[in-house]
């Protein structure tokens, strides 16, 4: 690990200013992903601004009947919240499908959104990777790509966003609230938060330098049955090959987002529109522009089957 200096900020604006002020500074929340990457020297911050004292650890109702989730609410606390379990079950389901109990106790809402890819070539500093080292190439293309993206990828990167929580937030139309170093705030729809790789795969999301996530808000509940179907190589504690976050209404209409398939949680409006026509119709729309590799082409029929299982579960609920 490279040496770094460390401070604790007292307010969100102070934290944002501290990171913007120092070249190579980063925010530190739970640290479960950042420290892992620092040990491998994939992340080499010169200064860490610990945000644990910012009092962003509450879940509160919003004026329009939704919920505001503080950036530092842990995965464990968010999944266990009675309001989330009752009204946003897809979110609890997604969180408890990810990581381990130990990690969920430290991992935060904001940190989870910023989780970096688990592409094996990103993790191996001996391999070229445009995400880790811009311009160095992509060893995943033509390499071992079973886990990697089937859609939205580019000639520069086929990494996936690895998390589960954000896939549920995408289906819930959540909004990410931030504060910048100059103290101004903004609200970013989750659909616009993560980026596709394009020719800038080193950028995972649309945050500016020093911009700090303060909360994630959920709109008022939309009812329906909530599902998170995660398909992976072992029954627990593994990243998704494919995951399906869905909210299904009594008449069979609904919404669906897919995890494990792209550089961001994958949701296509035209696919939501055909939910009543069944899983194959939905994935035909959602994966119309897919560019899978020989290794991961299986993910598309797998997504159809996972969604079919989800729809069947919704019918019997």
């Amino acid at each position: 690990m490279k040496p770094f200096t460390y401070e604790r900020a007292k307010t969100p604006a102070e934290a944002a200013a501290a990171v913007a002020r120092q070249p190579g500074a980063k925010f530190l929340a739970g640290g479960t992903n950042l420290l892992d990457l620092m040990k491998l020297e994939i992340e080499t911050p010169r200064h860490l601004v610990d945000v644990q004292d910012l009092k962003l650890d509450r879940i509160e109702p919003t004026s329009d009947g939704g919920l505001r989730i503080g950036a530092l609410v842990t995965n464990t606390k968010l999944a266990a919240d009675t309001r989330v379990r009752r009204d946003y079950g897809v979110l609890t389901r997604a969180i408890v499908a990810g990581a381990s109990g130990q990690l969920r106790n430290k991992a935060t809402t904001a940190g989870n959104l910023l989780q970096r890819t688990r592409c094996p070539y990103f993790y191996d500093p001996n391999m070229p990777c445009n995400k880790r080292k811009p311009g160095s190439g992509c060893a995943a293309i033509g390499g071992y790509s079973r886990q990697l993206a089937v859609i939205g990828s580019s000639d520069h990167c086929i990494a996936t966003y690895p998390g589960d929580m954000a896939v549920a937030m995408r289906v819930l139309d959540a909004t990410v609230e931030t504060v910048k170093a100059d103290g101004t705030t903004r609200a970013i729809p989750i659909a616009d938060f993560h980026r596709l790789p394009g020719d800038t795969p080193h950028l995972d999301n649309n945050l500016e330098a020093g911009e700090l996530i303060t909360a994630v808000t959920l709109p008022r509940p939309i009812g329906g049955t909530h599902h998170y179907e995660k398909v992976r190589d072992r029954a627990s504690y593994a990243f998704a090959l494919v995951s399906v976050a869905a909210i299904i209404q009594k008449d069979g209409s609904g919404r669906v987002a897919f995890g494990g398939v792209a550089h961001k949680p994958w949701r296509v409006e035209a696919a939501d529109d055909v939910m009543t026509q069944g899983a194959a119709a939905v994935t035909a729309k959602a994966f119309a522009d897919a560019r899978p590799t020989d290794d991961n082409a299986f993910k598309i029929p797998l997504a159809t089957r996972a969604l079919a299982a989800t729809i069947a579960e919704g019918r019997s609920a």
């Binding site: 040496p3 770094f4 080499t44 811009p134 800038t200 080193h202 950028l203 500016e208 330098a209």
Partner: peptide, 22 residues
């Protein structure tokens, strides 16, 4: 890598020298 970073202002510059341990 540093050359690519210069073309992409979003990326933090790689420091030329490591800091001493703190």
């Amino acid at each position: 890598a540093a050359a690519a970073i210069a073309a992409a202002p979003h990326v933090e510059a790689q420091p030329a020298k490591a800091l001493p341990p703190a």
